[in-house]
Each structure stands twice: as C-alpha cells, then as structure tokens.
C-alpha cells in the first residue's frame, strides 16, 4: 500500500469539494428518477462518499480520480437499490418497480463494503469534543500548519501537536471500543 501522495497534493478539503461538485448533480438526478427526494440524494451522497473515502485511504480502492468518480457512483447505486428494497419491504409508498439487477459496474462492492465500520468511525468522531474536532479539521482537512493553528487558537505549536496526538488517540480508543462491542475489529 502506498501513501496517499498522488491524491493529496491538494488538501482534502479541495479534493472533497471537487468530488462533491463532480458527483452530486449526477446522484441527485439518479435518485429523483428512482423514487427518491432531494434529501434522500443528500443523505445518500454523505453515506457514499464516507464509504468510498475510507476505502481510498485503506487502499481497498486504488485508481485514478476518474475511476474514483465511477466508484462513487457505483456505490451510490448499490446503496440506493438496497434502500429501495428495504422501503418496499416496509410497504412504504414506493410506486416504481425496484430494479431486480444488482448495480452493474466494474468494482466488486460486496468485498469492500464497509458500511458498519463507517458508522462506528463516524460515531467515534462525533463523540470527540469540539476542540478536538476543530484541531483535527484544521490540520488534516484544511491542511493548516501547526503554526497557523497555534496562532488561531492562541496556543503554542507544541501544545497543538500534543493535543492533536491526544485527540487522535481518543478517536482510536472510541473506535476500538465500539468495534469490540460489535464483535471484532
């Protein structure tokens, strides 16, 4: 597995905003044409990008940005078909026929499905304090330097570095505990 160098010459906020712009319009159209609403499309995008992003980081997806867009769309279709199936089982008002076939595509999604893990990771992050979330966001997402963060938060570089380490350890701890409760990591 390679470090994520090719992907992150840009900061993650730029990469993610691009992925959003590239895929959300397509996804909205797809969901609206298949018995869903705008809110469904938004939720589906969030869920899809989370799954895809984790697999990108862990090397379970590897490829170019174009391939990644295709990957995102295939995951979205797959998730949406599952959602429609579960809605029709619950006998809600899905009028359209749910397509029978699996979402066709070049990626083997069942092997890399990480829905449950993604949920646990998400919950873990959401349980962090505001300060941790701010620092991790500035450092990893916006790629601000320790110096910039220290200035912004009126602190020293060294303490920001230590706080960042503690926050990541807290995130790690939360996730490992949740994973154990759910029977294995």
């Amino acid at each position: 597995m390679e470090p994520l160098n090719d992907w992150f010459t840009d900061s993650p906020d730029k990469v993610l905003k691009k992925l959003y712009a590239d895929n959300l319009p397509w996804l909205e159209q797809y969901v609206l044409q298949n018995s869903g609403s705008g809110t469904d499309a938004h939720d589906l995008f969030q869920e899809t990008i989370t799954s895809a992003w984790i697999n990108l980081h862990t090397g379970r997806f590897s490829g170019s940005r174009d391939q990644f867009n295709a990957y995102i769309r295939q995951i979205a279709k797959h998730k949406w078909l599952n959602e429609l199936r579960s809605r029709s089982r619950k006998k809600t008002t899905v009028t359209d026929q749910v397509p029978d076939q699996e979402a066709a595509g070049i990626f083997h999604l069942t092997e890399t499905d990480n829905t449950e893990k993604a949920t646990l990771l998400q919950e873990s992050f959401q349980e962090l304090g505001d300060k941790c979330r701010t620092i991790l966001g500035l450092y990893y997402y916006r790629k601000k330097s320790l110096n910039e963060i220290a200035l912004k938060l009126n602190n020293t570089e060294n303490s920001i570095k230590t706080i960042k380490y503690r926050c990541m350890m807290q995130l790690r701890q939360l996730f490992l505990e949740k994973s154990r409760q759910h029977g294995g990591v």
Partner: peptide
C-alpha cells in the same frame, strides 16, 4: 497503519461534512 488510515479518513470526511453544513469554525 491500517487503523490510522481509517482514522485519518474519518477525520477528514467528517470535517468535510461539518464544513458543508456550516462555516463551523
């Protein structure tokens, strides 16, 4: 390393969602 990759992924993607929802910082 694999664990840290996942933590890094969630830290960035969740920050993205917060960023989308509002200029939270």
């Amino acid at each position: 390393l694999d664990l840290q990759r996942q933590l890094l992924a969630i830290a960035t993607i969740e920050s993205f969602k917060l960023d989308q929802e509002a200029t939270i910082e």
